[in-house]
Amino acid sequence: MSAVMRSRTVAWPRRLVHVVLIALALVFLVLFLLLPLATVFVEAFRQGVAPYLEAIKQPEALSAIKLTLLVAVIAVPLNLVFGVAAAWAITRFEFPGKALLGAFIDLPFSVSPVVSGLVYVLLFGAQGWFGPWLDDHGIKIIFAVPGLVLATIFVTLPFVARELIPLMQAQGSEEEEAARVLGASGWQMFFRVTLPNIRWALLYGVLLCNARAMGEFGAVSVVSGHIRGLTTTMPLEVEMRYNEYEYVGAFAIASLLALLALLTLALKSLLEWRYGDEIAAHAPGGH
């Protein structure tokens, strides 16, 4: 674009500045972002492919993978429905307390992951509000799968809503009004007009939500109890192996998570590149 034209025509001191700035930025990106990523894979394969595969095939590893998928499969759709409902209410209607609702949706972003887990321990743990009652009825939430799911829902709650609200605000409600005037019922309007208009932003939000849900560490670590094979998700398995000096095993699981991250980045870039205007001015803040 014009930057290229400019850099060709401007005087050499300015071009030098460009080159220096680019070099500085790239050195930082490589040293600070790329190198840690590379470390994960190098450490995972430090002793070759066989130990790597061995580490992944262990039953603890497989159950951690299954548990991680299970948690994401429950948490992400729930937050998807919530995100759509919240965005619909906020962008299509006027009501008192709207700004407050928006602020509450963002709340989990400013709460430490550890605190996010802690609140559920205080609610459902042995000494919590509902602890004794749950105990009497034989229901386990903390140190069990439901706790992991709840903590994950908490930390990933804002993603879809945050993605949809600015887009739906920008799109306005004219098309939906047109659908109504043309005789569409509520659901017809939603599935034929609203949903197609937000599908890519929705996918984008789900992608970020899923990445966080599968990778969450702090919050699930508090509610998990670290029972191997039962309540350890992949990030927790990474921690446990690392603390037991099983570096190859830790990095092997970590490499799977890193692949997930790379896949997320690739899909995210693809969405931004292909459907940039349909994702629109999305609020930055995907943790």
Binding site: E174, E175, E177, A178, A179, V181, G183, P196
Partner: peptide, 20 residues
């Protein structure tokens, strides 16, 4: 309700369904 009024409306910015 709007959908029962037998009205045709042309919106200011047309409000065409962009995905159709």
């Amino acid at each position: 309700p709007a959908r029962e009024r037998r009205i045709g409306m042309v919106f200011q910015h047309y409000a065409l369904f962009r995905h159709l």
